[in-house]
């Protein structure tokens, strides 16, 4: 091993400087996406509300809608009623999927 080799090896194996954090970690943490658990209650409440809204709509509106549709629509009233109620429930669910 020549002197140049030894010198080079010494340089290469010298420990590198420890860089002070100086707010680096905090900056990374600030840029993280919203915590998963923080999104969960929102999703739970939205789902529960959508289910409650669907049930309430079915209870309150099924008869009047069916009556109105049987009077004016050419399609069978039960099909349209189910479609209307399904739409009411699926809109909030679509919103959840979109925001996720």
């Amino acid at each position: 091993m020549t002197h140049a080799d030894r010198e080079l090896d010494k340089m290469l194996r010298s420990p590198e400087p420890e860089l002070p954090d100086s707010g680096f970690t905090e900056t990374v943490l600030r840029r993280l996406p919203t915590k998963r658990w923080a999104r969960t209650p929102m999703r739970r409440w939205t789902l529960a509300s959508a289910a409650a809204l669907g049930s309430l709509s079915t209870y309150l509106l099924a008869d009047p809608i069916e009556h109105a549709l049987s009077t004016y629509a050419a399609f069978p009233a039960p099909v349209l009623t189910i479609a209307t109620l399904a739409l009411l429930v699926s809109l909030p669910l679509a919103w959840i999927l979109y925001t996720e």
């Binding site: 590198e16 420890e18 860089l19 954090d21 680096f24 970690t25």
Partner: peptide, 10 residues
């Protein structure tokens, strides 16, 4: 992050 920041930045 704290453990790896210095060597990674180097």
């Amino acid at each position: 992050v704290r453990r790896h920041q210095s060597p990674l930045r180097n």
